[in-house]
């Protein structure tokens, strides 16, 4: 973690320096893992395949949480993260993580039963907590937009469905044919969530620097991260027998695009609020002047 030091005299929003790629790693690992845990219940096809998928999912979540642990300033006090369930979504995420791991491991051990569904639901709850963590960060305009919660949920489902599609292609006997259609549905949801999120940011205003990151990203993301896998899936539905690898590639692209999206929002578009004056003060014989909000789109 880098020191938080504010450039002296800085008025326009600047990029926060506290949460870097490691924070993005938590959202990437958490989203992918919980999404996979959810789709593994539907797509595994056999107990052995479920075990593999669930273990991969837990590994993803674990890597994400390790990233967070590596970022905090006092890692040996990490247990204190459990102290504030009343209002902190970070505490709630940590609280959900414990039974999530226990249930998923129990599901792996017993190979089914109630633990499978419980682990999947806890995963969705964990993912929801991640969305609320960003939403509660009032100092970062690109994060605090309420629509980010549905975007984080949709992205997690796409990542999970993408990875499930890939694993289904690799594992023997796994993967119903409709899994590609589920991935397509998740992609459409993510496209919708992204559009709604970005339009809300345009409407409410954003630091110009954050908009300079998100606008060009959005154009590329919609083409490469959304349209490309959607086309691949549709082609795969018709020509899957001739080109069996298409859904695998579609899953890979959908997964990678989710990671790209989160890295961009968490690590690149994280410009802070900056400062603003609703009115300029009267100086000498002058009059009150309209206020200023330096570095903002509106």
């Amino acid at each position: 973690m880098s020191d938080i030091k504010i450039p002296p005299g800085r008025v326009t929003p600047w990029h926060q320096t506290n949460w870097d790629w490691r924070a993005a790693g938590n959202f990437i690992g958490g989203g992918t893992g919980t999404g996979l845990l959810f789709f593994a219940t539907l797509a595994a096809g056999s107990v052995d395949n479920y075990r593999i998928m669930a273990l991969v999912a837990l590994a993803c979540i674990g890597v994400g949480l390790t990233c967070v642990w590596a970022e905090i300033g006092r890692p040996f006090r990490a247990i204190n993260v459990y102290f504030h369930p009343q209002t902190s979504w970070m505490t709630r995420e940590a609280i959900v993580a414990a039974p999530l791991f226990l249930c998923a491991l129990a599901a792996v051990w017993f190979g089914g039963g109630l633990f499978v569904g419980t682990a999947a639901l806890l995963g969705v709850l964990f993912l929801y907590c991640q969305g609320r963590i960003l939403h509660a960060a009032k100092g970062i305009p690109a994060w605090r937009e309420p629509k980010i919660v549905s975007l984080i949920l949709a992205t997690g489902f796409v990542e999970g469905a993408g990875l499930a599609t890939m694993l289904a292609a690799l594992l023997p006997g796994a993967g119903p044919r409709w899994l590609a259609a589920v991935l397509l549905g998740a992609l459409i949801l993510r496209r919708l969530a992204w559009t709604v999120y970005f339009k809300a940011l345009e409407k409410s205003g954003l630091p110009k620097k954050a908009m300079e990151v998100l606008r060009p990203f959005g154009a590329k993301f919609e083409m490469l991260g959304q349209l490309a896998p959607e086309i691949l899936i549709v082609i795969g539905i018709f020509y899957g027998a001739v080109l069996p690898g298409l859904t695998f590639v579609a899953g890979l692209v959908a997964l990678a695009a989710g990671w790209w999206l989160k890295y961009t929002i968490v690590a690149r578009a994280a410009y802070n609020q900056g400062y603003a004056l609703p009115s300029l003060p009267v100086r000498g014989q002058g009059e009150v002047m309209p206020g200023v909000k330096p570095g903002w789109t509106k």
Partner: peptide, 15 residues
Amino acid sequence: ICIGCGYCAVACPYQ
């Protein structure tokens, strides 16, 4: 008891 997670820093709109 602060763990230095920096969440407060990104939550503060006054930097």
